[in-house]
Amino acid sequence: MKLLKQLRPEVKAAREDVIVFAVGGYKLAIAAGAVKEIRGMDDLHPFKLGGISAQIAKLKYTLERNGTTYFVIDAAQHFRLPASNASRVMVLRNTPTGVLVDSTDRIMEISTLHALPPAFTHEERGWYRGLAVVNGLVVPIVNHNAFLNRSELEIVRAGLERVRGVVSV
């Protein structure tokens, strides 16, 4: 009985809309509810702030929208992939984060979310909420909070405040 329980894969049954996007030739998906807007590359400002750029190399641009500064992350770099041809920015909801991706595909509904198999033990455990299987294809569902996590956000904010303080003096 115990063995059966241990063998049972972790699967969460919950219908959810996700947006499929591509990075470096891979198809991934993000919860539709986590995305506020999908836009082109216009109005992006290169982010260059000495120490911060070195610490968080995946942070490439900022984007000003309605008085909020969004920090735009290169998804290819986040997933440790070779540089790709980013053409779209997914602006996330409830976090000042944007994500550079190669393309966005479609919204689809998933009905189950499989846990990432425990054999995957490295950074990917933080990258994904789980895996969905759609028509036999495995699509990782990303953890949108991992693109720029809380501590990284603190570093960026502190750095920006420091710079703004210097400028205002």
Binding site: V23, G24, Y26, L28, F79, R80, L81, P117, A119, F120, T121, H122, E123, E124, W127, L131, V133, G136, L137, V138, P140
Partner: peptide
């Protein structure tokens, strides 16, 4: 089927 990950030896998954 493959997706980005960093675990050595794992080449992907089968369904």
């Amino acid at each position: 089927q493959t997706f980005p990950h960093r675990t050595p030896l794992l080449t992907g998954v089968l369904v």
